[in-house]
């Protein structure tokens, strides 16, 4: 039996320890927001946070996350209570087919947690593990930039000065 925290709740599973975290979360805990894309850690559709860091969970055995804290897209925000990145995804009309976007947003959230004001090159570096076949990259970048610290600081300043 392996215990871990899933979106703030203590959970346990008797799945085979080799089972990738992705499939435990999807098939056992029925959280379907994280996606299967390649099964080889190459596309990032399965990205979740493990102790706050972005991880490719299709190649992360459940044994490796024992007693760790897992956050999935469902734990990041909900339609009624959007995370700023999710709101930015809406605002910038980022998703097309949408299948990769949970992973993109989880990667972006981890990037901003580690570096609240990334440069364009740093966004490229932080997001290059996530494939979007629809080609939403320009919009993903714009959405990330819109919630980076500088952008937020600028917005706050603009509001204070009545320029919003």
């Amino acid at each position: 039996m392996i215990h871990f925290m899933l979106n703030g709740q203590s959970v346990q599973t008797d799945a085979d320890p080799d089972t990738p975290l992705l499939w435990v979360v999807r098939d056992h805990f029925k959280l379907k927001g994280s996606k299967f894309g390649c099964g080889a850690g190459l596309c990032g559709a399965c990205t979740m946070h493990v102790d706050g860091a972005a991880a490719k969970t299709c190649v992360t055995p459940i044994a490796a996350v024992a007693d760790k804290s897992i956050t999935t897209i469902e734990g990041l925000g909900t339609p009624e209570d959007l995370h700023p990145l999710q709101a930015a995804w809406h605002e910038h009309a980022v998703p097309q087919c949408g299948y990769c976007q949970s992973g993109q947003i989880m990667a972006a959230a981890a990037l901003l947690d580690a570096n609240p004001n990334p440069s364009s090159d740093e966004i490229d570096a932080g997001m290059s593990g996530n494939i979007c076949r629809c080609g939403c990259y320009p919009r993903i970048k714009r959405a990330i930039q819109s919630v980076s610290e500088n952008a937020l600081a600028y917005d706050a300043m603009a509001q204070t000065e009545g320029r919003a």
Partner: peptide, 18 residues
């Protein structure tokens, strides 16, 4: 905006695999 963007940004849009 797109009518499906919030569902797709929150992992609540249902794909066949879900």
């Amino acid at each position: 905006r797109r009518v499906d963007a919030i569902a797709k940004a929150t992992g609540t849009a249902q794909f066949g695999i879900d």
